[in-house]
Design a binder for these strands. Structure first.
Lengths: 351, 351
DNA sequence: GTGAAAGCGCTAACAT
DNA sequence: ATGTTAGCGCTTTCAC
């Protein structure tokens, strides 16, 4: 994170960015009142010469300068949602949830940044907003950067592994969700189950593998978990699946505990021409709008995506108004296993 | 659009939003220099006591106040992308394209608003950004609101019908794209083709229907176009398809020229159990990441989504730097027809 | 109910 | 190269 500006970065010449806006003083003069009165009028207070002010505001097309107001009020009336990638449907649904409950006064400002740029992004966003919902904090440094902003912050989805912090959190019960998925497969008779694990450094990656391991451990039969590592991306899912299915004792079922990974995995299975669920059962994570149109529709571990965003925003807003709970809240949402057609008993030959 | 604040709207008490940040004066005092020197240092200029300043900046965790800087410089270093719905994959891809070329100095701030709230959203966003990319301007009033901001603006995807304006525009050649799709169907032998038209008030809706009509008109054979109206949403696509397929002389092919509409249409076809392409051919609009996993994968009219965003951002940035072209640019992108497996000749019985 | 005046934190002359 | 000063547009005491 560079705190000094880039000497090379071309700066905008002042004023180039547009036409100068009307100021409150111009409106005041036009209406024959003081700027104080205009200010009061704009905030909805009772004013004697309201008519005249309204006319001047309309005629001059006056809109208060957000920077000036923000400077004076020490308030931006904006919140930021930070995530890695807007094209991830889960993120889009989350943002939707945030916006669905945000008070209209707040601007929700959406920012994306990869893990490496996250600190810098937080650095420069911090002063532009009153609060932050961060769905991208995978490392301790990210949390430190968030705290350094001095703004109320809610962590969503990710938490850095083994890092103490006192921020509010809205996460999933990933362990239980994954356990339930793998239990389903075991119940169907699968004994060799491939799991496409995510990065160990990320809580989500660890927990979802943990859940799978728990299920195997608790099973009455001997269950072999074949773990393939991936980066939780589409390509990673594709390649991990290819590795899993290329080996001698291939799994009879695959659990891909991430939406992109699952998509990549399904593509690989599709390209390999393996019949699902006849030769291979499959469970993914997070729903896609069009899962019903897949052949077969994949069983997935689902979550209340937009509720997750809504809860985070509600929590954030109570903090911004200074009346949140005394201690940091930790909200854990339950997942549900949505059964579709991608799971069945293992093929007889390989049982 | 209400210009006065809502008397009822609870405002944030000043200061509640977080911890007060360090100011430039505090840093100056700590480093034993003037605030001017700190300001220069922060902007990357050469400063003699750089060491001391750097130390103070780090120790006090100083970050310049964006509101104060913006007020003074008359620049926000932020741009807004306005769209209807972030969960639409096309919008996400567009935003991606915008961010991929935006200079790092700019914050891209993403805002959603339905057609009815759009004016209000533009009103309050206008003063917070240096430029706007609007992928939601479907009515004249929207364009007027955009112009009233006094900020450089690029219209993307939508333009209000029959409305003169002098804004830059990055749109699709929707007429040609739709014509090509319907020509494909006609070439396969289809003579009764269902088209799920969008709202007539929206340029995209009109043009895509126009293209279909052009294709029918130019055909050497007699082609009957069965037009069903929809709102370009998922449900609208579903219902329009149900209507189309419920009638006596049902079409042998359907063209659904919008991504959500197409998805809804496919769901309806799927629910009805109609074999595609054996009994019914299908063409949609805009690709989905997982189209290959559909059965059958639908042929679609595709566009360079993220290039569209990138072009818009480049245009906007040149305007913001005051060195854009003298007259408004109108960039029209070509679409491509991506053939997948959802099209074939019409069934013999109904040919 | 209204206006005058001060000041939020920053940058840009200007003088040194 | 550095410091002094003024002022961006707004809200807010404080007096009237």
């Amino acid at each position: 994170m560079s705190e000094r500006a880039d000497k090379d970065g071309e700066r905008l010449a002042p004023g180039t960015a547009g036409t100068p806006n009307t100021t409150i003083d111009e409106v005041a003069r036009a209406a024959g009142v003081s700027s104080t009165t205009v200010s009061r009028y704009m905030r909805g207070e009772r004013v004697r010469r309201a008519e005249a002010v309204a006319a001047a505001v309309a005629r001059l097309n006056y809109r208060p300068n957000a920077a000036a107001r923000g400077l004076r009020m020490r308030t931006t009336e904006a919140v930021a949602v930070v995530a890695h990638d807007i094209t991830n449907p889960y993120v889009a649904a989350l943002v939707r949830g945030v916006q669905s409950v945000a008070s209209p006064q707040f601007f929700s400002l959406f920012v994306t940044a990869g893990p490496d740029e996250l600190e810098a992004a937080i650095f420069s966003i911090g002063t532009r907003v009153d609060g932050i919902i961060c769905a991208a904090a995978t490392e301790s440094a990210h949390v430190e950067a968030l705290k350094a902003t001095g703004r109320p912050t809610v962590l969503v989805e990710f938490e850095p592994a083994d890092h103490e912090h006192d921020l509010d959190v809205v996460v999933l019960d990933n362990v239980a969700g994954s356990r339930r998925a793998v239990e389903e497969l075991i119940g169907l008779g699968h004994r060799r189950i491939g799991v496409i694990a995510g990065p160990d450094a990320i809580s989500v990656g660890r927990d979802r593998l943990q859940g799978a391991e728990d299920a195997a451990q608790r099973a009455l039969a001997d269950v072999e978990l074949l773990v393939a590592r991936s980066d939780f991306g589409f390509d990673g899912g594709y390649q991990a699946t290819a590795r899993l299915l290329g080996r001698g004792a291939a799994p009879t079922a695959i659990f891909a505990p991430n939406n992109l990974t699952a998509l990549g995995s399904l593509h690989c299975i599709h390209d390999l021409g393996i019949p699902v669920p006849d030769s291979l059962s499959f469970i993914g994570f997070d729903p896609l709008a069009s899962h019903e149109l897949f052949t077969p529709p994949p069983t997935t571990v689902d979550r209340p995506e937009s509720e997750q965003g809504a809860l985070a925003m509600r929590l954030l807003e109570s903090r911004m108004r200074g009346r949140g709970p005394a201690t940091a809240r930790r909200i854990v949402l339950e997942t549900t296993l949505t059964l579709r057609a991608s799971c069945g008993p293992p093929p007889p030959a390989r049982r």
